[in-house]
Amino acid sequence: MGQVQNMQTLFERLGDLKSFFVYGQKLIPTLQKIVDFMQATIPLLETVNQSIQESTNKLPKAAVQIDSVTNATEVAVTEILDVVDEATSDCVTIISKLESLRTRLDYQKKSIQRLTEKYPDDPDVKELVANGLNPEVILEDYTSVTALAGKIQAGLMNITISLQVQDITSQQLASANHMMNSIQQKLSSLLYDIDVKDLKETADDAKISVSSDLAFNPEARYDKNHETQAFADLLVAENKTQTSQKEIDELFLKK
């Protein structure tokens, strides 16, 4: 009796096995399709890998180029400042000489006045004053030249102010470099997932060099509308009162 039962169980198991093989046969085409698909994706993955590697390798070059742009603009700005300093110094000399000219002009004016008073009817004196020594005409020229010198001086100062853009853009470029470094690290870890050997190549041969002594503000903006300064002035003024100190303390706690 027991043997009959065992045989029955055996046939049942064989039936299960047969069903499994029948199912397996049906599954084979699907598995084949998966294998075919995977084989087809290998070149694609290789292309992706190559593309990532190429991008990763280009990043250090871009970082170096950004650094060289920063250095070049700093050199250029220094050269401009040299010229501006020299021109400003010349302007100061011109203004100083004009001041001394003014003193002499005042003296000349008095002398001419005395001369015309002394010789009111002398035609030579009249001609001299009319053609070459008219103090009013000279004074007019003096005033316009002085105004022009002042205008040039103000313009030179405006150039100096605008050159602050170099510091601000260098901070923006440093920020871009920092971002590129982060991207390269991400790409490197992606390469690691695809092929460990590629990671080694990237890490050893193509590491971005971000200058470690470069401190920057990623939010640096060249904004001449002075609204931010007005806002800073408000906070500084508020800081001096007890009520606003409370507000500032609250803000400080939120950080």
Binding site: D167, N217, E219, R221, T228, I248
Partner: peptide
Amino acid sequence: VTTRGMKEDIVEALQ
């Protein structure tokens, strides 16, 4: 004298 113009920055400097 800085490029940092955020409220928190100014407050931190004042603190």
